[in-house]
Write a protein that binds this DNA or RNA. Structure first.
Length: 106
DNA sequence: CCCGTGACGGACA
DNA sequence: TTGTCCGCCACGG
Protein backbone atom coordinates (compact mmCIF):
# COMPACT_ATOMS: atom_id res chain seq x y z
CA UNK A 1 0.00 0.00 0.00
CA UNK A 2 2.40 2.80 -0.79
CA UNK A 3 1.85 4.01 2.74
CA UNK A 4 4.57 5.95 4.33
CA UNK A 5 5.68 3.99 7.34
CA UNK A 6 7.35 7.00 8.81
CA UNK A 7 5.03 8.48 11.38
CA UNK A 8 3.86 11.94 10.54
CA UNK A 9 4.57 14.79 12.91
CA UNK A 10 0.97 14.74 13.90
CA UNK A 11 1.17 11.13 14.96
CA UNK A 12 4.29 11.82 16.98
CA UNK A 13 2.49 14.60 18.73
CA UNK A 14 -0.49 12.40 19.43
CA UNK A 15 1.77 9.77 20.87
CA UNK A 16 3.42 12.24 23.20
CA UNK A 17 0.09 13.60 24.33
CA UNK A 18 -1.17 10.09 24.94
CA UNK A 19 1.81 9.57 27.24
CA UNK A 20 0.84 12.38 29.57
CA UNK A 21 -0.20 10.78 32.87
CA UNK A 22 -3.62 11.37 34.27
CA UNK A 23 -3.80 14.25 36.69
CA UNK A 24 -0.93 16.10 35.04
CA UNK A 25 -0.67 18.50 32.14
CA UNK A 26 1.88 19.72 29.62
CA UNK A 27 2.22 22.86 27.55
CA UNK A 28 2.12 22.95 23.77
CA UNK A 29 5.78 23.85 23.77
CA UNK A 30 6.61 20.94 26.03
CA UNK A 31 4.78 18.53 23.77
CA UNK A 32 6.57 19.92 20.73
CA UNK A 33 9.94 19.50 22.41
CA UNK A 34 9.14 16.00 23.62
CA UNK A 35 8.08 15.02 20.13
CA UNK A 36 11.44 16.24 18.89
CA UNK A 37 9.89 19.08 16.96
CA UNK A 38 11.73 21.90 18.66
CA UNK A 39 9.68 25.06 18.95
CA UNK A 40 6.75 24.12 16.81
CA UNK A 41 4.30 24.77 19.58
CA UNK A 42 1.83 26.09 17.07
CA UNK A 43 1.92 22.91 15.08
CA UNK A 44 0.91 20.99 18.19
CA UNK A 45 -2.29 22.95 18.47
CA UNK A 46 -3.01 22.37 14.84
CA UNK A 47 -2.30 18.66 15.16
CA UNK A 48 -4.73 18.37 18.04
CA UNK A 49 -7.30 20.18 15.96
CA UNK A 50 -6.91 17.48 13.36
CA UNK A 51 -7.49 14.59 15.70
CA UNK A 52 -9.52 11.84 14.03
CA UNK A 53 -12.90 10.88 15.36
CA UNK A 54 -12.93 8.15 17.95
CA UNK A 55 -9.43 8.93 19.20
CA UNK A 56 -8.44 8.32 22.78
CA UNK A 57 -5.97 11.14 23.02
CA UNK A 58 -6.16 13.15 26.25
CA UNK A 59 -5.97 16.46 24.44
CA UNK A 60 -7.38 18.24 27.48
CA UNK A 61 -4.05 17.79 29.28
CA UNK A 62 -2.36 20.22 26.92
CA UNK A 63 -2.32 23.86 27.96
CA UNK A 64 -0.45 27.04 27.20
CA UNK A 65 2.96 27.62 28.73
CA UNK A 66 1.43 29.88 31.35
CA UNK A 67 -0.98 27.18 32.47
CA UNK A 68 -3.95 28.76 30.81
CA UNK A 69 -6.44 26.93 28.65
CA UNK A 70 -6.03 27.79 25.00
CA UNK A 71 -9.70 28.24 24.17
CA UNK A 72 -11.64 31.47 24.66
CA UNK A 73 -14.10 31.57 27.53
CA UNK A 74 -17.24 31.51 25.48
CA UNK A 75 -16.36 28.23 23.80
CA UNK A 76 -17.78 24.83 24.52
CA UNK A 77 -14.36 23.26 24.18
CA UNK A 78 -13.05 25.36 27.01
CA UNK A 79 -15.75 24.18 29.35
CA UNK A 80 -15.23 20.59 28.30
CA UNK A 81 -11.51 20.78 28.89
CA UNK A 82 -11.94 22.36 32.28
CA UNK A 83 -14.37 19.70 33.35
CA UNK A 84 -12.15 16.86 32.17
CA UNK A 85 -9.19 18.26 34.06
CA UNK A 86 -11.21 18.62 37.24
CA UNK A 87 -12.38 15.05 36.95
CA UNK A 88 -8.73 14.05 37.01
CA UNK A 89 -8.05 16.05 40.12
CA UNK A 90 -6.45 18.99 38.37
CA UNK A 91 -7.37 22.26 39.98
CA UNK A 92 -8.58 24.86 37.51
CA UNK A 93 -9.20 28.45 38.53
CA UNK A 94 -10.59 30.90 36.03
CA UNK A 95 -9.34 28.90 33.09
CA UNK A 96 -5.93 28.50 34.61
CA UNK A 97 -3.99 25.63 36.16
CA UNK A 98 -1.33 25.71 38.83
CA UNK A 99 2.16 25.41 37.41
CA UNK A 100 2.90 22.68 39.93
CA UNK A 101 0.79 20.39 37.87
CA UNK A 102 3.48 20.51 35.23
CA UNK A 103 5.66 18.26 37.31
CA UNK A 104 5.43 15.13 35.23
CA UNK A 105 8.46 13.12 34.27
CA UNK A 106 9.05 11.02 31.19
C1' DC B 1 5.57 29.31 -5.90
C1' DC B 2 3.64 32.90 -2.84
C1' DC B 3 0.69 34.21 0.94
C1' DG B 4 -2.24 33.95 5.02
C1' DT B 5 -3.16 31.42 9.06
C1' DG B 6 -2.77 29.27 13.66
C1' DA B 7 -5.85 24.93 20.40
C1' DC B 8 1.91 29.00 20.68
C1' DG B 9 5.96 31.26 23.22
C1' DG B 10 8.71 34.69 24.94
C1' DA B 11 10.12 39.57 25.36
C1' DC B 12 8.75 44.13 26.41
C1' DA B 13 5.89 48.34 27.92
C1' DT C 1 -0.97 42.42 36.37
C1' DT C 2 -2.62 42.73 31.31
C1' DG C 3 -1.92 43.80 26.42
C1' DT C 4 1.01 44.19 22.18
C1' DC C 5 4.60 42.65 18.99
C1' DC C 6 7.57 39.50 16.75
C1' DG C 7 9.42 34.92 15.68
C1' DC C 8 8.63 29.76 14.25
C1' DC C 9 7.14 26.68 10.70
C1' DA C 10 4.00 23.35 8.51
C1' DC C 11 -0.08 23.47 5.71
C1' DG C 12 -3.92 24.93 2.66
C1' DG C 13 -5.60 27.78 -1.06
Amino acid sequence: MTDNQEPTREQKIWQVVAAIPQGTVASYGQVAAMAGLGRQARFVGRALGRLPAGHDIPWHRVLRSNGQIAFPEATEARRTQTEKLRLEGVEVNNGRVSMRTFQWRP
